[in-house]
């Protein structure tokens, strides 16, 4: 059975979607990912869609589904690498995927996940609160 591979990188999972997905494959990915999050106690999921040349409402729904399910399982989801034409089309279609975190590429997505993990584990949240609205977009030069 055709499957989209899920890679484990430390405490994160990385999915690179490179095929033109039919709906069943998308549903299967959703199931596989949630299982894998629990099995590997992953804290974050990166979904790289830079190779996708369209995202329609079904794939959009699948991405939103993964994001909210992983949240319940205590893992953050970041969708990375959406092409400009795809983004414009999605907006025109009427989907803004409000609940989903995004990043320009895998590197940035990884950083976003790491920063938000650090933030949530940090006992002293004062700094985070002060900069609440800038959450997780900080470019911290120590990393």
């Amino acid at each position: 059975m055709e499957r989209i591979p899920i890679l484990k990188l430390g405490s994160f999972l990385l999915v690179t979607i490179q095929v033109d997905m039919h709906d069943e494959l998308a549903v299967r990915l959703q199931d596989d990912l949630t299982t894998k999050i629990v099995d590997s106690s992953a804290r974050g999921v990166l979904i790289d869609i830079s190779a996708l040349d369209i995202v329609d409402s079904f794939i959009g729904r699948m991405l939103a589904g993964i994001a909210s399910m992983s949240k319940i399982l205590d893992a953050q989801t970041v969708v990375v690498g959406m092409q400009p034409a795809v983004a414009i089309t999605l907006v025109e279609l009427g989907l803004s995927l409000d609940g989903i975190k995004t990043a320009l590429n895998v590197d940035r997505g990884m950083k976003l996940l790491r920063d938000s993990l650090e933030l949530s584990e940090d006992e002293n949240l004062a700094a985070g609160e002060a900069n609440g609205e800038f959450e997780s977009i900080h470019a911290s030069d120590e990393n």
Binding site: P84, A87, S96, T102, L104
Partner: peptide, 13 residues
């Protein structure tokens, strides 16, 4: 507004 939303989908603000 659409541009701002599309940029956000790409991961930019």
């Amino acid at each position: 507004i659409k541009t701002v939303t599309a940029a956000r989908l790409m991961g930019a603000e």
